[in-house]
Design a protein around this nucleic acid. Structure first.
Lengths: 160, 160
DNA sequence: GGTGAAAGCACCGAGTT
DNA sequence: AACTCGGTGCTTTCACC
């Protein structure tokens, strides 16, 4: 957790390639950037140690796994002092993939993945039942446009 | 894209290990599951070919990259027939990391990542300026609770 | 901080049961 | 469908720049 980390153009390019495919061989990266594979290895290790790279994960096709349902649920609390308690309860529900404490309309806000409407209904009922939740508002996603992480990263690097 | 794919317990365990760390050596997975590394290889390849595994990606610490700001933006359209057009424009903005067509309050709904409030404001203005957008409503995230993908996967597998 | 070579492994396909 | 095994190629280290 050493304060500020400086990344140069080479680091950016390494990250861009690994974001596209975590298993890109370091030898391939080395060839493309005209450096040695050892250097790629050292740089990646440094970025892991400094906490820039948190980890790596697979992208799965949830539809093929039978999970076709996505919704966002806005949560209203009775008192804002219950925020942390409710957040902890929410984090225990595996079908909630992200949760946020928000300003604006809702106190809390989360995304759920479910098999179908019936399944989603049960998850939303679980949320409604948490102590301190006064009511919820659900937005059902009819279409998710996949996000391209590389594009975001490229724009981040351009502005550094 | 062959309709239904059946995964057994071994596949689930392979996926769980790779979700935690994409670079887990197949030999380690093989040892843990008491099968040969060749078998792990064949199974992973099948899951890639069948489209269950879409790809792999790094998880980065956006805060350390100077991106501390997350917000969700709900979008109201003048006419729903403009949905696809607006979605296409939205996908061109790199700071928008996910976008959804939704039922309920909003017509479209997206997540943005920015450096700070000033930067976020500019992105939201970009959205407001798209033809067909009548107005937007922003929810600022003050805290994001990170999701543990393994937990979701495990719950998916338990119910198969 | 980078290199290049060498040792140690992992990947992956072919052939077998 | 899974195993073993061997060739190929990747990772990782280290002495040197």
């Amino acid at each position: 957790m050493k304060g500020k980390i400086k990344l140069d153009e080479t680091d950016h390019q390494i990250l861009n390639m690994l974001i596209d495919n975590t298993r890109t061989p370091f030898t391939d990266i080395a060839k493309k950037l005209d450096i040695s594979a050892g250097t790629v290895h050292v740089r990646v290790k440094k970025m892991e140690e400094s906490g820039i790279i948190i980890g790596s994960s697979l992208t799965l096709n949830y539809k093929k796994l039978g999970y076709t349902f996505i919704a966002y649920v806005g949560i209203f609390l009775e008192k804002t002092s219950q925020t942390q308690f409710v957040l902890n309860r929410i984090e225990e529900i595996p079908n909630i993939t992200v949760a946020h404490v928000t300003t604006g309309k809702f106190n809390l806000f989360c995304k759920i993945r479910a098999k179908n409407t019936e399944h989603a209904k049960n998850i939303i009922f679980l949320i409604d039942d948490i102590d301190g939740v006064s009511r919820t508002e659900t937005m059902i996603s009819m279409e998710e446009s996949l996000n391209d992480k590389t594009r975001l990263m490229k724009s981040i690097f351009e502005n550094m």
